[in-house]
């Protein structure tokens, strides 16, 4: 992994951590929020129970680089792509989407096609997730190599 260390980043990454569905399992989302913050990112947390619409709107209003979505209730195949679709409709296709949760292999491929990457399962080290986000933001948002 050739990722740049968080403290050496060109500027601060703005990230929205969101749980777009009826899912109160917020342990992972809250741990990630703290980890992203400790990695120097500006973190916005969606709070619980936003709709995909709410999440997309929040991402635009907060002008984030990336939305990190977490669901553990099995509804990722509906909710994640829907956030992507709404962002596109609202002209914000450049906001990056990453996902995580209990996501079966076959779903990961489909999500990837919709531009939702990562799709990290339980037990993934925080560093792997942070590196993935930094790499995508630098390459796709900031057009850096």
């Amino acid at each position: 992994m050739s990722s740049v260390k968080p403290e050496k980043l060109e500027r601060k990454i703005r990230i929205l951590v969101a749980k777009p569905g009826l899912d109160g399992h917020d342990r992972g989302a809250l741990i990630l929020s703290r980890a992203f913050r400790d990695a120097g990112m500006e973190v916005i947390y969606s709070g619980l129970l936003p709709t995909p619409d709410d999440v997309a709107q929040m991402a635009i209003d907060e002008d984030v680089d990336v939305v990190a979505m977490s669901l553990l209730n099995g509804a990722h195949m509906t909710a994640f792509p829907m956030v992507g679709r709404i962002l596109k409709e609202k002209g914000a296709r450049d906001i990056l989407l990453v996902g995580g949760g209990i996501i079966p292999e076959e779903d990961k491929k489909l999500l990837q096609k919709d531009g939702i990457t990562g799709n990290f399962g339980p037990g993934t080290p925080l560093k792997t997730i942070i590196d993935h986000i930094i790499e995508r933001v630098r390459k796709e948002r900031w057009k850096l190599k």
């Binding site: 569905g21 009826l22 129970l49 209730n73 099995g74 509804a75 195949m77 509906t78």
Partner: peptide, 15 residues
């Protein structure tokens, strides 16, 4: 929420 509520979409009968 009832099963036809927008928030229920994708979650009916899942867990």
């Amino acid at each position: 929420y009832d099963c036809d509520h927008t928030k229920a979409h994708g979650e009916v009968g899942k867990c």
